[in-house]
Design a protein around this nucleic acid. Structure first.
Lengths: 282, 282
DNA sequence: CAAGGTTGGGACAAACCTTGTACAAAGTCA
DNA sequence: TGACTTTGTACAAGGTTTGTCCCAACCTTG
């Protein structure tokens, strides 16, 4: 437990400000000693830091506090707890995804993806394999997350005129979430991403390439069955744009081999290196 | 929620300009705080970006907003032109969805769906049948429209505690757009819609019903092949909730028959009558 | 006990937002 | 061409929000 001065030192927010936040917006009324001294716990400090980050990002403190109160930080548990909540049915999906929106505002998007979304998808796959998550649960979650990511995608500013990047899934592949997250990151960096959607046959990739003349093409290979599809897409696109850069993500990305580039499992860095390869400053 | 300064920073449009647009064209009168401060949500920000995009592309702001709002605008030719533009490749998808977004902001959402989106989907199907629209074009458009509708879905206020409505597509059916538009309308009316996504087998509908205890279930039957699936879903859900209300949309909705309710092709009215049937005031 | 931290509340300047009016640059039209 | 409209931006006067400061009284620690 910390007194207000210690809390101020640890969070970097002046004690007067912490008191003002409590007085004005009712932010985390702390426990008190017998004499009336405030005593904060670690959760309170975490909340202060979250509010601080939002304020630093330009939010009005009132709005920041309200947002964090509505979607209590405690409510977005770590990835494993989240999946556990889905499996047991104890998680309110509506509230959890709304909280994710606040998360996106508090932390850099790519960090949330690398440290939360991708691990979460991994756990989800495990639990699904064990039969602890039903198809309909997985569907509903995927749809909700796609909407959240779509919000980020739409709010990213694009600079037209630069190199075009085509993203989509190969025939038979419908696992959109990872790719969409990557698309959001790349688009947030200002690149012109064209998102084609799931389950697209190789010849359609050729048509898309003819229309868009992409500098790069990104897809994923979550299972072994996707590998030949990825190569087919490579052929189809290369027939139109011979020197196109092709990148691939997903569990089996390293099994595709030259000249396809594996993106790795850290999307922030992957997006960065993709931008560099295309000669675009980020 | 964002203040006007925040909105200006996030959209890149000066606050004075946002106020001028509101004053001159009535663009998205926002909520206000007690003190009169404007508060914008994500959908409003999307609209601003869309108008900005149109202005950047050479539209006049007045036309970008008012022309899309005026009553004497012919909707159907416009939807046809839209599809024509997609087919010929002369239409910029970003710009096209931008006009749709502005319409959502200045017209009742259900009217835009009834008079523009649904006819447009009809034309799109026709051209697709004629081979004038490729699969990848249709995919990319569908993904973009789903993102835009998802934005509406997410920014619609929900009142938990009321009757739950389950929406999704039956096994093999992946035509999400119509259903998603309907989901947006119903959710905007304050009802608790759970959107399950496409391609869900009947037994999974049963599982979802066990979790959510829905008062109503909505799906679509765009082709004849979907009819048996719809009946299978009805059986599966009724095994859990015997007196559930089941509604169906899509081209073949009238061929399902009792006790399934056909929604008709005017979603505004359909949503209204669904709400009435559930005893909810809208 | 002394020194330093904490309590509440009031006060205040800076930053932000409000409405209304004004104006220059650019476009439109007869 | 000249008159008129449109549009982005600017400014003034006034209200709101917010970080910070002050202060007398109280608490904790050495």
């Amino acid at each position: 437990m910390y007194t207000i001065g210690q809390a101020a030192k640890l969070t970097g927010i002046p004690a007067e400000t912490l008191r003002a936040w409590e007085r004005r917006y009712g932010l985390t009324p702390p426990e008190r000693t017998n004499a009336g001294y405030r005593l904060y716990d670690d959760a309170a400090l975490a909340t202060f830091r979250e509010v601080g980050r939002l304020v630093e990002a330009g939010w009005k403190p009132r709005e920041a506090v309200l947002a964090l109160k509505d979607h209590d930080v405690e409510w977005l548990p770590d990835a494993r707890e989240f999946v556990e909540g889905i499996a047991s049915g104890s998680l309110d999906l509506e509230q959890a995804t709304a909280t994710l929106g606040v998360r996106f505002a508090v932390q850099p998007f790519s960090r949330v993806v690398d440290e939360w979304l991708l691990p979460m998808l991994g756990f989800l796959g495990e639990e699904w394999a064990k039969g602890r998550i039903s198809v309909e649960q997985e569907h509903e979650l995927a749809a909700a997350l796609m909407r959240r990511l779509g919000l980020v995608f739409e709010s990213a500013a694009v600079q037209r005129g630069g190199p075009v990047i085509l993203m989509g899934l190969t025939e038979g592949n419908r696992h959109e979430l990872g790719l969409m997250a990557f698309a959001c990151i790349v688009r947030s960096a200002g690149l012109d991403v064209r998102y084609l959607g799931p389950d697209l046959p190789a010849e359609e990739w050729g048509r898309a390439a003819k229309r868009a003349r992409p500098a790069a093409v990104v897809t994923t290979a979550p299972s072994q069955a996707d590998l030949p599809q990825v190569l087919a897409v490579l052929d189809a696109v290369r027939a139109i744009v011979p020197d196109v850069v092709m990148c691939v993500g997903g569990q089996r990305q390293y099994e595709v081999g030259e000249p396809v580039i594996a993106l790795g499992h850290r999307f922030g860095e992957a997006a960065h290196s993709l931008a560099q390869r295309l000669g675009v400053a980020v």
